[in-house]
């Protein structure tokens, strides 16, 4: 039976889970939300990061969060490169960059999936760390440590990125490039380099959130497909490019998923984010806290 305790339970877990979803969506909130890059390979990059963390954890016994930090610079470079390629092949040529870009990133996502399968096989993989598998009990409620770790890192990341985008020169330039590329050019800044930098940041964040992904639950090579729904749902619902909106939207998704999971079972879970995404696109495409009209 569905009781008040169960609902409370679902809300608490949902909020924690939502913060985690916010963390994995932050990068997309920059790349798609601010830079208009239809980055459907974002979740594939995320899963790739999770496997890199798995590799470091399995072979060198490195703590997953530390491993995540270690690969962050690598992912930053990877992001710089990816944007350069995208810019040279699509944005520079102009017409229908978005639509062909989405096909391009789907191709990239498929390539990453297969490379992971060839290297690690199709089985689920997980990491070992002291905080994986334990739980914190309050009364009847059981809150897994891994969710709490994810929650804390996610909260820290969101705050850091928000501060970065609002307080630093580069961060403000990134926001400006999303608003008006020409104005920036007139001020003597190179919008392409700023966008490339922003894409680098967006990808770098995936290093640490990839670690969260594999801490929260075991990963498999095609996990990215589920996360296309979750991340795009969060970013579109947030209203493209809003960091605080991302957090709120992700929490809404987290709670919705947990409640549906409790009420109807796990088999409905994959559809929640996609259904919400569809709903938002159809009813309020500018998102809940939208930047666009």
């Amino acid at each position: 039976m569905f009781s008040f305790e169960l609902l409370l339970d679902a809300v608490v877990i949902g909020v924690l889970l939502g913060c985690f979803y916010a963390a994995v969506s932050l990068g997309l909130s920059i790349s798609f939300g601010l830079l208009d890059v239809p980055h459907v390979a974002h979740p594939a990059f995320l899963v790739l990061a999770a496997y890199a963390v798995f590799f470091l954890n399995e072979h060198y016994g490195i703590d997953p969060l530390v491993a995540g930090l270690l690969i962050t610079p690598l992912f930053f470079l990877f992001g710089l490169l990816a944007y350069r390629l995208y810019y040279e092949t699509f944005e520079k040529r102009g017409s229908d960059a978005g639509v062909r870009g989405i096909a391009f990133f789907f191709g990239i996502a498929f390539i990453i999936e297969v490379l992971i399968i060839l290297q690690f096989g199709v089985d689920q993989r997980s990491v070992t760390a002291t905080y994986v598998g334990k739980a914190w009990r309050i009364g009847d409620m059981r809150i897994p440590f891994r969710l709490i770790v994810a929650f804390m890192v996610a909260a820290a990341l969101t705050i850091l990125l928000t501060l970065y985008l609002s307080r630093t020169f580069m961060g403000r330039a990134i926001r400006a490039v999303a608003q008006d590329q020409e104005a920036l050019r007139l001020m003597g800044a190179d919008p392409i380099r700023i966008k490339q930098w922003a894409f680098g940041i967006a990808t770098a964040v995936l290093g640490i959130t990839g670690a969260l992904l594999i801490i929260v639950a075991p990963v498999e090579p095609t996990l990215d497909r589920t996360y296309i729904g979750r991340t795009f749902c969060v970013v579109v619902m947030a209203g493209l490019g809003s960091m605080s909106g991302t957090l709120v939207a992700a929490i809404i998704l987290g709670i919705a998923e947990t409640i549906v999971l409790t009420l109807f079972g796990a088999s409905w879970a994959p559809a929640i984010s996609f259904a919400m995404l569809l709903g938002v696109l159809a009813v309020r495409p500018q998102g809940l806290f939208g930047r666009r009209s």
């Binding site: 559809a271 996609f274 696109l281 495409p285």
Partner: peptide, 21 residues
């Protein structure tokens, strides 16, 4: 209601929703 990338994303979403059903 939607064009370009948003239409494409919506069609992916539609697929998963139908599959889950």
């Amino acid at each position: 209601r939607m064009q370009g990338i948003f239409f494409s994303i919506a069609t992916i979403a539609l697929t998963i929703v139908i599959e889950t059903s």
